[in-house]
């Protein structure tokens, strides 16, 4: 399924219906311990990744911890 999404601030067209499908198409290791996702300004818990459908125009943030002060 082709969707128009905003992914980490970039407007893109992707083939993904759920968060899990999006992560895989983006090359994100979905088993990685420290990844978190927000859709439209709200955290999408890991437990919902396989079931949570995305829709056209959704704003998705995919983040992880990095060095910081």
């Amino acid at each position: 399924m082709s969707l128009e999404l905003r992914i980490n601030g970039e407007d893109r067209t992707v083939d993904a219906g759920t968060i899990m499908e999006l992560l895989r198409s983006e090359g994100v290791d979905d088993t990685a311990r420290f990844v978190a996702v927000a859709v439209n300004g709200a955290v999408a818990p890991r437990a919902d990744w396989t079931t949570r459908s995305l829709g056209n125009g959704d704003d998705v943030e995919i983040v992880n911890p990095v060095s910081g002060g």
Partner: peptide, 9 residues
């Protein structure tokens, strides 16, 4: 401390 940033695959 750590920061939270957009993932770099």
């Amino acid at each position: 401390t750590v920061a939270i940033r957009r993932i770099n695959v």
